[in-house]
Amino acid sequence: MKKLLLILTGSALLAAGAVLTQTMAQSTEPGANKAPAASDGGAAAARGAKAWANHCSRCHNLRSPSELNAELWDVSVQHMRVRANLPGSVADDIKVFLMSSAMAEKQYSSAPPQRAATASFAYLAPGDVVHGKEIFSQTCIACHGADGKGTIPGVPDLTAADGRLVNPDDLLLTNIIKGYQSEGSLMAMPPMGGNPDLTEQDMADVLAYMRKEYGIAPGK
């Protein structure tokens, strides 16, 4: 038993040592203290969505991205970074995802309801299934899962024949572009999956992909 204890302490100390030396090495690099450049918002949000779904459900239920505003997510993820021993880079990706989800959300939910709930997206080009698949497997997969059945409580099974996809395109596009949370739902669908780099056309592409993949056409 003593041996085990020694091994445990030893490895903890080693890890601490490695980290400290790395810290020192890093801080002597020129420009090491510069704020990280906002270079890859889209990719970071896609990574962040996955890391959020994976890590933020380890101890407690995932809390809906709509629960806090961007600034509070900033504080809360920092808090969780410590509690969960997350590497800073992973925590930062999660922030990209949560903060862009929350920020976009605020912006939409504050729009006065002066227009019909469903917008028309007739100006978008017909969806490109191949590109849609790409988008799906980068961003949407975090919550909807590779098979579209949903991996998180509150995420609907999109493959169900009588499920959400029987709704008309315009309604679905409105919901996924603006983000929404239906009455009593446990989790919000963040606008464009919480990825600030995606466009309305991208959403039309994913929708086309999902319709083809799950074989569900809009109902009557």
Binding site: G48, A70, D74, S76, H79, K95
Partner: peptide, 23 residues
């Protein structure tokens, strides 16, 4: 006006240096 999708994470512009949260 806010461009679609907010920002990739950086501290929110105009956000003060200190933020707090009651949980």
């Amino acid at each position: 006006n806010v461009p679609m999708g907010g920002v990739p994470y950086q501290r929110v512009a105009n956000q003060t240096d200190t933020s707090w949260h009651l949980a």
